[in-house]
Nucleic acid binder design. Structure first.
Lengths: 123, 123
DNA sequence: ATAGATGCAAAGGGTTTGCACTTGA
DNA sequence: TCAAGTGCAAACCCTTTGCATCTAT
């Protein structure tokens, strides 16, 4: 992926405007407002290319298909609202979890997902 | 699912012997050592039934199809080996993660997954 | 005897790929 | 110009479902 196309521009725009992790279906829907007739295959291929070039980062939550967010935000975790299903970034980390690692195992990284209600849904 | 069958017995046996979360493919493979010709559809149907009756609990890790483990083990987390892809139970928990929760959000539960190498793969 | 359970094969749903057409440089 | 990029449709992979057969009770 080297050329600049309407489709690629639209897809990047969609992620920048969203400011939260998006799935391929959401990208297709939003992208079609910029490029009529945008195809799902192009969305998948462009996402794969943007992940490859590290412009996007995959966001994988348990039991859900992958979402993607703009890369370069450093180590962080996510909070998923059980009411509206939106995913938010959490700027904080429980820190080293070495003390949970079984003897003889080697810890390399961790994932933490919080669940509950977001501000909008707590009311 | 009410009747006792060779297939159902074999599948429960497989989970009890494994002592770790298994996916449908692993269950099929191991189950065929007890019941020749065991079908994948039976595995899926039996797992669904055992989850329904709360004998099994789904284990969902980020970006992977669900595994299942014998229920009733209380709150715990998992460690996934990046080498052999097996998943192990961790008996421990970082504790309350309230301090990571954004203001105005309500925390209900959390998931933690550790990644690295298991004892067998560290060597 | 008979309703539940099984195995096969076909159907689904989301993702990937092949291919001819379009388009950016 | 002409290879990269796109859209369509078919292929894929894993999971679910329909249906005839088998079997536990």
């Amino acid at each position: 992926m080297e050329r600049r196309t309407r489709q690629r521009d639209a897809i990047r725009r969609v992620f920048e405007d969203a400011g939260r992790p998006l799935g391929p279906g959401e990208v297709l829907e939003a992208g079609r407002e910029h490029v009529e007739g945008l195809g799902i295959a192009t969305v998948y291929r462009t996402i794969a290319s943007l992940v490859e070039s590290e412009w996007l980062t995959p966001v994988e939550l348990p039991g859900e298909p992958p979402r993607y967010e703009v890369a370069g935000q450093g180590h962080h975790h996510h909070f998923r609202c059980r009411q509206c299903a939106r995913v938010f970034e959490i700027h904080g980390c429980p820190g080293s979890l070495e003390h949970l690692t079984p003897p003889g195992f080697s810890l390399e990284r961790h994932e933490v997902t919080l669940y509950g209600l977001c501000t909008a849904c707590v009311g």
